[in-house]
């Protein structure tokens, strides 16, 4: 049962991701991206990381993707008009990508040859309490620094996008 769910949502994630790149219209891409986020959230859930799953949906799919969609609509960006030129790139990139992914998967498989299939529900450290504990004790420093990072991101958005004052 777990396996079926895993493969189902993994497939959705991959297909949606490819769709993001392939689609002409940015709205379609954005919506596909929402699909990716959703599937990932389900996968997290299956792994037992319920906090992350919830955060993924709320923050990523709920806030960030909504922001994306808003901006696309405000900009009124139409479908991508010009055909993709530079077929050379695609011709080289695709096989390379496939090769690369193949190598990585092979390596991972070699790395954990006897790994059992994931048994969902075995991991119990994903509750909000556990995550909170980790964030405020062992990972206190990165947690605090992240706030500076977010601040910079906000500043950046304002600096780059505001109207001229004078």
């Amino acid at each position: 049962m777990d396996a079926i769910l895993f493969f189902l949502f993994a497939a959705i994630a991959v297909v949606s991701a490819i769709n993001v790149v392939v689609q002409r219209h940015p709205i379609s891409s954005a919506l596909s991206l929402v699909g990716v986020m959703g599937s990932l959230a389900v996968l997290y859930l299956l792994l037992g990381a319920e906090f992350i799953a919830a955060a993924q949906m709320i923050v990523y799919a709920g806030a960030i993707m909504v922001l994306f969609v808003f901006v696309i609509m405000l900009l009124n960006a139409g479908a991508e008009k010009s055909p993709r030129k530079g077929w050379i790139l695609t011709a080289v990139a695709m096989p390379l990508l496939v090769l690369f992914l193949g190598m990585v998967s092979y390596i991972i498989q070699r790395g954990f040859p006897n790994a059992p299939l994931v048994v969902f529900g075995q991991f119990t450290g994903g509750s909000p309490k556990d995550v909170g504990m980790a964030l405020f004790t062992r990972y206190l420093l990165p947690f605090e620094i992240t706030s500076v990072l977010i601040l910079i991101a906000i500043i950046g958005a304002v600096v780059l996008a505001r109207k001229e004052m004078e």
Partner: peptide
């Protein structure tokens, strides 16, 4: 610590993205 280093890199990088694009 890996996470700290990664956030440090991102901190530096994002700031530089902004600084590079400063001449709007």
């Amino acid at each position: 610590e890996l996470v700290t280093i990664f956030i440090g890199i991102e901190l530096m990088a994002v700031t530089f993205y902004i600084l590079v694009g400063f001449l709007r």
